[in-house]
């Protein structure tokens, strides 16, 4: 990647993608795949599922590239797509509660064995997140993850989730309350 290419702004990259420039799309993926993966992982607490959601999110970006507004903030779009994919996944799992794993995981990545260090780091993190937030319903988990873990503004959370500002605040407050209660319960037991 030459400096001039890597320094292209998101707006330029989206425009180039709209002219079917796959190289531009590669830069966009390289720039944002960590964000998409991190957010998907914080929601799902599963490495493989997070990778799958991340891939699907970028495929969706590519498929809908002609309809995108290049001026709009790309990260917001990505958060929106990942949120939708995670909600879809949660719903389809609820419909088939017996199977724990997504049936549509990309097999290419499974052959790529992650290092033991990565596995244990992600498992540890997943345990920490689940420990406090496993009782949150999807809406509260989504709002909490966007606002408190991804550090987005309320306005952005509203835009991504399509929920009203009032409802975002209520869900956020409820989520925080449950987390604190959970923490108290845990520390109470531990001490």
């Amino acid at each position: 990647m030459t400096p001039s290419e890597s320094q292209r702004t998101d707006v330029q990259l989206i425009r180039d993608c709209q002219s079917h420039d796959q190289a531009a799309f590669r830069y966009l993926v390289e720039r944002y795949q960590a964000t998409a993966f991190r957010f998907a992982f914080r929601l799902s607490c599963e490495t493989m599922l997070a990778e799958d959601i991340c891939q699907k999110a970028f495929l969706r970006v590519w498929n809908y590239r002609l309809k995108l507004n290049p001026e709009a903030r790309f990260a917001t779009l990505l958060y929106t797509i990942v949120s939708q994919l995670w909600i879809d996944e949660t719903r389809s799992r609820n419909r088939r509660p017996s199977s724990k794993d997504s049936i549509d995981l990309n097999q290419d990545l499974i052959s790529n064995e992650p290092s033991i260090e990565t596995i244990s780091h992600n498992q540890d993190l997943a345990r920490r997140i689940k420990r406090l937030s496993h009782k949150l319903p999807p809406k509260q988990r989504l709002v909490f993850t966007l606002r408190d873990l991804e550090d987005l503004s309320i306005a952005e959370v509203v835009q991504i989730t399509g929920i009203s500002a009032g409802s975002v605040k209520t869900n956020l407050s409820l989520a925080r309350r449950k987390l604190r209660q959970q923490l108290q319960a845990i520390t109470g037991i531990e001490s």
Binding site: R26, Q33, R38, R42, Q55, F58, D108, H121
Partner: peptide
């Protein structure tokens, strides 16, 4: 303290492989 331990970033097992797979 409540959320501190939740805000660590997860590791992508193989970022290059993920990009390549998407492309």
């Amino acid at each position: 303290g409540v959320i501190g331990e939740m805000t660590m970033s997860p590791h992508i097992p193989n970022p290059e492989a993920l990009t390549a797979s998407i492309l």
